[in-house]
Amino acid sequence: MEFSALNITCGYGKKAVIKDFSLKLGASEVICLLGPNGVGKTTVFKTLMGFLRPLKGTVILNGYELREIKPVKRARLLAYVPQRESSVFSFTVQDVVLMGRSAYFGFFQRPSKADRDLALSVLERLGLSGLKDRSFSSLSGGERQLVLIARALCQEPEFLLLDEPTSSLDFHNQLRVLSLIKELAGNGLGILMTTHMPDHVFMCGTSAAILGKDGFCAIGPLSEVMTVEKLSRAYGIEIKIFTLNGNGSFKVCRAKMDSLAYVAKKDGLYDQS
């Protein structure tokens, strides 16, 4: 099983946002996609999900071109966890998760007892059983994110694409989602996620992709990509990486307040200061 993008150029209409982007995602891998706002992460994501056609290049899922695979078949291989504030209609959590089974019970049919049981067992696995009769719109941001992950897991996919799964969550829920992602990858799922926090890449990523302005792009293992130079270049600030030693060691990224001025000076924007 492999999900890959080969030299894709993505964008809307004729305007290319990202050029010649390639990526390969296998089982148990977690690739984190980093980059500043407006660089085209969402566009890449939509292209990989098949919502947008690549302007050039191809997206390949298990040996077939993505857009040649029917939606029903694709949904059984590739699931999507969107960023979502709320929904227009307030479905119960149970119904939302059950929608993940749509690819199995078919267009004209309804969920069977087995589908319902599976949805409940996924909720239980994620510790969300208590929420099953609550209305989706009444949930907190963290709960909502977990419910959407549960919905995606109901599709029993091989690959999971998460769009900024931690972006609006508190510290506790960020960790809850990240550890879940790590656990799912441990069970064989191939995962691609976007994030704004380089620290999260160190916490659960096996590889990273950094997109920067003016076409900068770096993809590879953490040791090659998550470097001071590349991160600083992509974000346009001076970033430092520290290794914290305690109970095991882990890396964090930090940037000082004056690093903004520092880079601006280097670019020659503030000559006098």
Partner: peptide, 25 residues
Amino acid sequence: ISGWSLNTLSFGEEEALAMGVDVFR
């Protein structure tokens, strides 16, 4: 007969598509 698929549409076309619903049809 298209009742259940219509539910998925309340999350938007893209999400319905990602859940395997033939949104166009």
